[in-house]
Design a protein around this nucleic acid. Sequence first.
DNA 1: GGGTGTGAAATATTTCACAGCG
DNA 2: CGCTGTGAAATATTTCACACCC
Lengths: 206, 206
Amino acid sequence: MDKVDIPKKAIYRLSIYYRCLQRLKENGVETVSSTALARAAGVKPSQLRKDLAYFGQFGTRGLGYPVELLATTIRETLGRERLQPVVLIGAGNLGSALLRYQGFQKEGFEVVAAFDSAPDAARARGINVPVYPDTDLDEFLAKNGIKLAILCIPVEFAQATANRLVAAGVQGILNFSPILLEVPADVTVNNVDLALELEHLSYFIR
Amino acid sequence: MDKVDIPKKAIYRLSIYYRCLQRLKENGVETVSSTALARAAGVKPSQLRKDLAYFGQFGTRGLGYPVELLATTIRETLGRERLQPVVLIGAGNLGSALLRYQGFQKEGFEVVAAFDSAPDAARARGINVPVYPDTDLDEFLAKNGIKLAILCIPVEFAQATANRLVAAGVQGILNFSPILLEVPADVTVNNVDLALELEHLSYFIR
DNA sequence: GGGTGTGAAATATTTCACAGCG
DNA sequence: CGCTGTGAAATATTTCACACCC
């Protein structure tokens, strides 16, 4: 794939730029310079320009970037032009919080279903996403062509569940378990390890 | 500070190594080679050795690293030798989930208090950390010498609250709001943007 | 004048490869 | 002999600086 020589970090930043552009758009701004957008995103102007250049030429010299067009282009580049359905596995403490959390929805992801080994307990937590028993997972994924999954289950079950996800065609896993998941090369895992983040901070305080 | 020439990423990895070492210790393993530990951590052996070398010499040639000693050393390096008190601000959806989440406690952080503009509502969510009104925040931070804070409040209040944290002596902020916080150079902010992580994944699925 | 696009330089990080020690 | 510690090489990423265009 031609994505191979684009730094992973540039793709992360693309998401950040997209956010900033949305804010600008809401404020009725039509054009933005690399300097202004870079400041909003917390990067250097040259880096912003370089990042955007990986994907094409969008700016007008002397003027800047058209906010609307750039936002749309980034959205498409990120594969966000259509709503991506997501499932969540493990509606325990963290999982059920994420279900109530509106952040994903706000960014245009639809959490279509959750799965848990004790779905009744999970449902009781005031969630309005359907919670199904664990056993229905594989069939649901395949039937609905789900490509993205959020994994919030205890670490000892994480790898086994990841295997099931992969087998059912999932290509991206947002993993909250503090474990290194082993998946085929064509599956992307994104680890969010909350305790690790806190630990990292602790190094920087005197 | 002499920390300046150590790659930030190396520090992240230190936390990962520490986790792996804990597992090894539980299993009664006394010595581990860079190859074995690297595999467990998902990095290359040479990288592991280089990372450890930033902090000193711990290994025995021909043998490997003493698990116990290395774990202790990393713990100290990360500034984790003593229990760090942490406060959480914003006991809403995500915040209260994090309070019930046992991950921080498991890694040895103690969330000593939470703050919210509506503490009664938050308390009702089955949390066993004391939840105080927002207004008590500054005094509590100063009085207890709190250095670490978890910030889970709506994006529009994030910067203002961050300012209060900084003013009260907080040096590390784990920020869940999708915004770039502006803080003095001696304060470290670690951003966890859940929607961003999902968005990033979405780029990698075809 | 102002601001993008981009090769080239500077920096940062990873990986290699091997000397040296237990 | 096995495995660490580490300079040196290779790669990756960021930043510079300037040609070029509106």
